[in-house]
């Protein structure tokens, strides 16, 4: 008999929890099918499925879900509400499961993290395992193993990124959600342009730490969005070692529109706020990036 296949869309949470999911499901003995990297076709099918006011990242997610349809037995669509009262996520993440369920026929797998209402990650993963017909102990072990693997991977990532801080080139801190900057359609264009301009790009997402979260609360005491808090917390941590900050968000990201605006006003440092939508071409982006980097070079010359 064939193994049960579980599809994972390569968008949104995948960039946070991808390793956790794949190793958890593989350890339980399932075949995991991750959707291919974003292409123009995926985006178009996502756009057709979604409302025109939804954010670009969500449209891409829908496209990925659509490509997985009828290719696998289940699709994993989690609902991640919050990790505590002051650690909430975007409202799109809350409604994700219900939105997807209404246009797809393949059965969905889900787990619901809502720590404000005592729905914790481990219990939810055990429930997920149980719903797939696996034992409680087995699921728990699989979760613990994959969680350790996930932590280790993050640590290695941080180490690699930290090396870049010693570079003599112009250093830019790139503040963006991983599902935006690592997505081939949104972020890779920007990364390629920056690489050609010979600057060191430091990803803020790799430096998430508890210390940073505390610093984020100094900048913005009421901030209650987990992912944004983690990102802006890295700015005060690294501020002295970088030359400029580049904010990248997808159009129209609800949380970034407020938080990034506040950061632009509060942090006095050269910065550029790039907003990507499905129509933005690389030419306009290139000019803006070029002039931003010219400013950084000039500033460094003056300091000497």
């Amino acid at each position: 008999m064939d193994k049960v296949t579980i599809g994972i869309p390569r968008a949104l949470h995948y960039y946070y929890y991808g390793t956790l999911w794949t190793s958890f499901l593989e350890e339980l003995g399932f075949r995991v099918l991750v959707s291919p990297k974003t292409t123009k076709d995926i985006l178009t099918s996502g756009c057709n499925l979604s409302n025109d006011e939804m954010c670009l990242s969500l449209k891409i997610y829908f496209g990925h879900v659509y490509t997985l349809e009828s290719k696998c037995d289940y699709i994993l669509v989690p609902r991640i509400d919050n990790y505590g009262v002051t650690e909430q996520t975007c409202t799109n993440f809350l409604g994700l499961f219900d939105m997807v369920q209404n246009f797809i026929t393949t059965p969905l797998l889900t787990y619901n993290i809502d720590e404000a209402h005592q729905k914790h990650e481990m219990n939810e993963f055990i429930k997920l395992g149980l719903s797939l017909g696996k034992g409680k102990e087995q699921s728990k072990l699989a979760y613990i193993h994959s969680f350790k693997k996930w932590l280790k991977e993050n640590k290695i990532r941080k180490k690699e990124e930290s090396k870049k801080l010693n570079s003599q080139k112009i250093k830019i801190l790139l503040v963006s959600h991983p599902y935006n900057i690592e997505d081939p359609y949104i972020g890779s264009e920007i990364l390629k342009l920056l690489k050609n301009m010979n600057v060191e790009v430091i990803m803020a997402e790799a430096f998430i730490s508890r210390e940073g979260n505390k610093k984020a609360l100094e900048l913005s005491p009421n901030l209650y969005w987990k992912y944004n808090k983690e990102l802006i917390g890295t700015i005060p941590l690294l501020q002295k070692q970088i030359d400029g900050i580049l904010y990248v968000s997808s159009f129209p990201c609800a949380l970034d529109s407020l938080v990034n605006e506040l950061m632009l006003r509060k942090i006095k440092m050269p910065h550029l706020n790039l907003i990507v939508d499905e129509e933005s071409g690389s030419a306009g982006m290139e000019t803006r990036l070029e002039s931003f980097i010219d400013i950084l070079y000039e500033k460094r010359e003056k300091a000497r």
């Binding site: 979604s50 409302n51 006011e53 939804m54 954010c55 975007c90 409202t91 799109n92 809350l94 409604g95 994700l96 219900d98 939105m99 209404n102 246009f103 609800a254």
Partner: peptide, 9 residues
């Protein structure tokens, strides 16, 4: 955002 996600449903 919340209403946008509710609209298709």
């Amino acid at each position: 955002t919340p209403e946008i996600s509710a609209m298709p449903i």
